[in-house]
Design a protein around this nucleic acid. Structure first.
Length: 303
DNA sequence: AGATAGTCCTGTGGGC
DNA sequence: TGCCCACAGGACTATC
């Protein structure tokens, strides 16, 4: 499941191969991946073909490439969301097309060989669309109109510990729900929520309104540390569903301390000479992993 | 405002 | 061996 670090790995790969290139051919193999494009497939192809792609940007799990704009026309972008199983691969033209290829863009630039940028998506929860760019607090100054509602992500400096604390105290929900709410803080999914909560020694049902400044700071720091480490490792790949633009897996799964570790000993407890087993509990139609000793259940938890 | 249910999908895996 | 069905899971929408 691509979360912030995985999307950032993809962004960097796309930056290397797509920045400044022109879309020579647009092929849509499966219209369902354009569900979020207002205007339909024909409009998508017509507007994208011939456009020059600028440096890709990211906020949370949203990725976008601004299109070089013509004077007098409002700026737009190619927005990409990977959903559950989306991939962006860079290939040479003529490479065999993967089974779940949904969109292929042929990218050209003078004096260099053409490349194909392919959007692959097995479960079709992700997609591509064209949309206007709207002013934003994002470092690049704008954001896709369709992503304007999401909050700054955990790695943006604009989100500081005091601001994070204030946001949490203003809510009446459980801390993991808050972390997964992209309108409060973006980029966090199930994996990094559980990892950061484990790191910060907070139970997932901890009511946000009882969080202390210290705990909020510890949690934000934990999010940053775990996401930075995951980025260094090329992301988390449990299976072939998440890969970088060259098709390579990340290896952060080997560093996971909590997520997916049900039945295994908590490493922090082990270091302290105790044995505690990581537990999995159903949560919001998925799972929450935690150490029952390091992350004790609050008396009045919020699920 | 917060919580929940439904929707979109397909590969996987448990049950028989 | 093979069929069927339940299910996961990010984001969005509708509804309570």
């Amino acid at each position: 499941m691509p979360e912030l670090p995985e999307v950032e790995v993809v962004r960097r790969g796309v930056a290397q191969w797509a920045t400044g290139r022109r879309v020579e051919v647009t092929q849509v193999h499966d219209e369902r991946s354009l569900r979020r494009h207002v205007g339909g497939t024909e409009d998508f192809v017509e507007r994208l073909t011939g456009a020059v792609l600028l440096a890709p940007q990211r906020r949370g799990k949203f990725l976008w490439l601004p299109l070089e704009s013509t004077p007098g026309v409002s700026a737009s972008c190619l927005a990409i969301h990977l959903g559950m199983s989306g991939q962006v691969l860079i290939n040479e033209p003529g490479d065999p097309r993967p089974k779940h290829a949904k969109v292929t863009l042929t990218l050209v630039t003078p004096g260099q060989a053409a490349r194909e940028m392919r959007f692959i998506d097995q479960r079709i929860f992700g997609g591509m669309h064209l949309t206007q760019l709207a002013p934003s607090s994002h470092p690049c100054g704008s954001i896709p109109a369709t992503a304007a509602h999401i909050a700054p992500d955990a790695l943006e400096p604009v989100l500081d510990a005091e601001g994070f604390y204030a946001l949490l105290r203003a809510r009446r929900t459980g801390i993991k729900r808050a972390l997964l709410d992209q309108q409060l803080i973006s980029g966090v999914g199930n994996i990094y929520a559980d990892e950061a909560l484990w790191q910060a020694q907070l139970h997932y049902a901890r009511p946000t309104e009882t969080m202390t400044r210290r705990e909020a700071r510890r949690l934000l720091e934990a999010l940053r540390v775990v996401m930075d480490a995951a980025l260094q490792a090329g992301g988390t790949s449990f299976d072939a569903l998440y890969v970088n633009v060259n098709g390579a897996s990340g290896y952060f799964d080997r560093s996971l301390q909590c997520y997916g570790q049900a039945g295994r000993p908590c490493s922090r407890c082990e270091t302290a000479g105790r044995t505690t087993v990581i537990r999995r509990e159903p949560f919001m139609g998925r799972s929450a992993y935690f150490c029952p000793r390091c992350q004790p259940r609050p008396r009045r938890g919020r699920w």
